[in-house]
Simulated assay, not measured.
Amino acid sequence: MKKAFLLLSFFLGLQFYTFAQEVDNPERKAGMMESLFDFGDSVIDFISGENWAFIPAVVYSPETSLGLGARAIRVFRYKEDSASILRPSTLPITFLYTLNNQTILSAELDLWASENRDYLNARIEASNFPFRYFGIGNEPLIGEGEFYTTRYLYFHLNYERKIAKGIYIGPRYEFRTDQIRDRVPGGILETTQPLGFDGQRLSGLGLVLNYDTRDNIFQPTKGWNNSFSWMEFSQLLGSNFDFGQYVLDFRKYFQINQKQVLALQSWWSFTLGNAPFQHLSLIGGSDRMRGYFEGRYRDINAMVHQAEYRVPIYRNFGMVFFGHTGQVASKLGQYSFDRLRYGGGFGFRYKLNQEGLNIRLDIAFGDQRAFYFGLNEVI
Rank of each mutant, 00 (worst) to 15 (best):
Lys3Trp: 07
Lys3Ala: 13
Leu7Glu: 15
Phe10Trp: 11
Leu12Ile: 08
Gln15Asn: 15
Phe19Leu: 12
Glu22Thr: 11
Pro26Met: 03
Lys29Gln: 15
Ala30Pro: 05
Met32Phe: 10
Ser35Asp: 11
Ser35Trp: 09
Leu36Arg: 12
Phe39Glu: 12
Ile47Glu: 07
Ile47Pro: 04
Ser48Ala: 13
Gly49Leu: 08
Glu50Val: 15
Asn51Ala: 09
Ala57Gly: 14
Val59Asn: 09
Ser61Asp: 02
Pro62Tyr: 04
Glu63Cys: 05
Thr64Gly: 05
Leu68Ala: 12
Ala72Cys: 06
Val75Arg: 01
Lys79Ala: 15
Glu80Ile: 06
Asp81Met: 05
Ser82Arg: 14
Thr90Val: 13
Thr94Glu: 09
Leu96Thr: 03
Leu96Ala: 10
Leu99Ser: 12
Asn100Met: 12
Thr103Ser: 11
Glu115Met: 13
Ala122Gly: 09
Glu125Ser: 13
Phe129Lys: 02
Phe131Met: 11
Gly137Leu: 06
Leu141Asn: 14
Gly143Gln: 11
Tyr148Ser: 08
Thr150Trp: 01
Tyr152His: 08
Tyr154Ile: 01
Tyr154Trp: 08
Leu157Tyr: 08
Leu157Asp: 06
Asn158Pro: 06
Gly166Lys: 04
Gly170His: 05
Gly170Thr: 10
Arg172Gly: 00
Arg172Asp: 08
Arg176Ala: 08
Gln179Asn: 13
Arg181Tyr: 14
Asp182Met: 12
Thr192Val: 12
Phe197Glu: 06
Asp198Pro: 04
Asp198Leu: 11
Gln200Ala: 14
Leu207Trp: 01
Leu207Thr: 02
Leu209Pro: 01
Tyr211Arg: 06
Tyr211Lys: 05
Asp212Thr: 12
Asp215His: 03
Asn216Ile: 04
Phe218Ser: 03
Gln219Ala: 11
Lys222Leu: 08
Trp224Ile: 01
Phe228Tyr: 15
Phe233Asn: 00
Phe241Gly: 02
Asp242Ile: 01
Asp242Cys: 01
Gln245His: 10
Gln255Asp: 09
Ile256Phe: 13
Asn257Phe: 00
Gln258Tyr: 09
Ala263Asn: 05
Ala275Leu: 07
Ala275Arg: 03
Ser286Gly: 13
Arg288Val: 04
Met289Phe: 08
Arg290Leu: 02
Phe293Ser: 04
Val304Arg: 02
Glu308Phe: 04
Tyr309Gln: 06
Arg310Asp: 00
Pro312Asp: 03
Pro312Tyr: 04
Ile313Asn: 10
Asn316Phe: 04
Val320Thr: 14
His324Asn: 15
Gly326Ile: 00
Ala329Asp: 01
Tyr335Ser: 06
Leu340Gln: 13
Arg341Val: 00
Arg349Asn: 08
Tyr350Asp: 09
Ala370Gln: 03
Ala370Leu: 00
Phe373Asn: 05
Asn376Ile: 03
Glu377Ile: 03
